[in-house]
Design a protein around this nucleic acid. Structure first.
Lengths: 199, 199
DNA sequence: CGCCGCGTTGAGCCACGTCAACATAGGTGG
DNA sequence: CCACCTATGTTGACGTGGCTCAACGCGGCG
């Protein structure tokens, strides 16, 4: 649960911050803390809304998505972020760089598409939800081989709004059906078979 | 399912378009069609992603939210939009107006908050989801009286990922408990009782 | 009037949640 | 190295919340 910085630079000198790598399960930032906005270069990020009543899954960010953009307005993060796949993050639009309208619009459009994806992962039967999540992760792999890092069950359960047991059963079925080809155990790499004409 | 324009102006002369009013259940725009971006001044908008396999609920927009921003990039709408409460829309950021970075950032931050709201409406027990949707609608009423226009059951069902029957039962229960005070029938106005310390 | 769309209510059933037991991998200390 | 512990994942048995199906009420409209 610790963050690793690619540069040995001090954490708070924002402009010098470079690439940031976070292992699976790793904490990226806490809600309410100060920091900058990041673009996800690799991996998958889970966002959580933190309330007095507890914290709940509140969004997903994949390659190309921007997280923490609200810090440019308010200085603080609105959500908590953690890595559900090995992540690489790069600083995005630090204050000195001009805010390009087009870049922002693209980010906005991407955020809305991602939000629609996240909603879709909470509809339909359990097996289809879990399969949909794996396919989504595979679609955003940087390698073309559709190899994904399986998130922890608790994260998949939160995203799909299922229980860990149900997700585990769905994953077993995916493997049994050969849709998901195990390469090593635990958070190991998996290979998703051809996507069957999903629009 | 028809749109009504406040001005008698021709539909395709974008810069002259002014306020647009859409009745409940009304069609706002179709996915793939051309048009401009709008800001929701009043009411609630349901977004749908349209695929060859059918169209599915893909997002919610309430007062202050912007819909169709992607037209500024691609010229066409990515989603379909329809009114689930009597709506007033105003044009947003037409091409001639400079794209203000801060305005865009605020829109982005709002979109992410809304996406988190929409996800939350698909978690928990049926009654709590329906109650949550009513509370959300009440929170964004322009009058301070927390009077809401009840969307059609099919829309509430799509948003919460429940069936119409289950939503109907939940609504009956809300009325029986006095949480929702009927003022007239059908899409009539309702009054939501005090929000019980929901964070 | 008859028809249709929408909402309401009941009865039965099943997919998924709950609970429990166990497997496996890592970590830590001896 | 093993003994032990904990976190995570897997699998089975069982109960239930919400889905399915069906019937009906009501208002609007041709």
């Amino acid at each position: 649960m610790q963050t690793t910085l690619a540069t040995p630079a001090p954490v708070n000198t924002l402009p010098t911050m470079q690439l940031r790598k976070i292992p699976i399960g790793g904490h990226i930032y806490a809600a309410g803390s100060e920091g900058i906005a990041w673009r996800v270069r690799r991996g998958a990020v889970r966002l959580d809304r933190v309330t007095p009543a507890g914290s709940h899954y509140a969004g997903l960010a994949l390659r190309g998505d921007v997280i923490g953009a609200e810090t440019l307005l308010y200085g603080k993060y609105s959500f908590a972020a953690s890595a559900i796949g090995d992540c690489e993050l790069e600083p995005w639009l630090t204050a000195d760089k001009a805010l390009s309208g087009e870049s922002l619009l693209k980010t906005l459009a991407a955020a809305e598409r991602r939000a629609a994806d996240a909603l879709a992962l909470r509809a339909g039967e359990a097996f289809e939800r879990v399969r949909g999540l794996c396919l989504l992760l595979a679609r955003y792999c940087d390698d073309g081989r559709r190899e994904i890092t399986i998130p922890e069950l608790r994260d998949m359960a939160a995203i799909t709004n299922l229980t860990e047991e149900t997700v585990s059963r769905a994953m077993s079925r995916l493997r049994r059906l050969g849709i998901l080809q195990r390469q090593d155990r635990r958070h190991g790499l998996m290979l998703v078979a051809a996507e069957p004409a999903v629009a």
